[in-house]
Amino acid sequence: MSPTQPVQAGSNRSEVLLEASDLARHFDVSKPWLNRVLERTDKLTLKAVDGVSFTIRRGETLALVGESGCGKSTVARLIVGLYGLTRGRLVFDGQEISDLARRSGRRSAAIRQRFQMIFQDPYASLNPLWRVGTIIGEPLRFFRPEMSSVDRRRRVGELLEQVGMSAADANRYPHEFSGGQRQRISIARALANEPEFMVCDEPTSALDVSVQAQILNLMKDLQQEYGLTYLFISHDMAVVKHMADRIAVMYLGRIAEIAPSDQLFATPHHPYSRMLLAAVPSLEGEGRERTVIQGEVPNPVHPPSGCAFHPRCHHANERCKAEVPALIARSDGSEVACHAVEEGRLD
């Protein structure tokens, strides 16, 4: 799976790199206390992520797809410790990291330097007052304080060249670069500490298609060269198909279906996966009308009962309205959370 993985001293080279079980993150979205009292409203909880489990194997790319509000970005932030877990457990390479959000500074440095994150907005992800060299060197200054500034500068130059820029760019400021170049700088910063695992939150959705192609190619090249493992988050099915080995489809804070990429695109099981695939506009289709799907994603603060997808689903019955379906593994390697599929009403 990982041909050129540089062996980390003392690391346990298990097949599974990250295991997430029953992740949940709830946000308190109630109005201030005084308004609640005056308007006689209750506390409101947004269950952004509610019981998500998956594993990521070393060297693979797992994609999370879904529409806005499905919780895919929250999952990313839970994994890297930007948010604390409301419930659930995260194990990274055999080490429990569930409480990572509460650990900062040196105490968590050993684990934190093994993964990194790439963000969506290339205009907000670089400190506008810092030179590019300082930005890329920041993780090095923190994780390797013993490194001399000359070595650090050399390393920053290497990193810039690795992402297709020139070492001289280190002296410039972020505003001098285009969106695509800034995303390259972000990637260089993420690579600084030779991480094994990268969480990529919609890394190309703010970019133009031709620049997207450059960035996606770069990410694939880097994955091959360093044996990186990616958690790739996107709403774009075509991009996901291009990048992912396995895909998890999320809907309103839960996983609807996880399947190997080819499997999902050939035979999606969950009605929502089918809908998502049918909704993708196609360049190839000879003026093909997209299947028009009724309805929109409901407000996640008030999700529907039972299976959250049931109001939009043609196969929903009484059980779907009452009971939350669990992810059940199927013989073809996919896992599906759907009563209809489980009962054989739908295959």
Binding site: G105, R112, Q120, E138, F142
Partner: peptide, 15 residues
């Protein structure tokens, strides 16, 4: 809320 601050958080920089 900007992503450059989140990036610093992911590294684990102290507050």
């Amino acid at each position: 809320g900007k992503e450059y601050v989140q990036a610093a958080r992911v590294i684990g920089l102290p507050d």
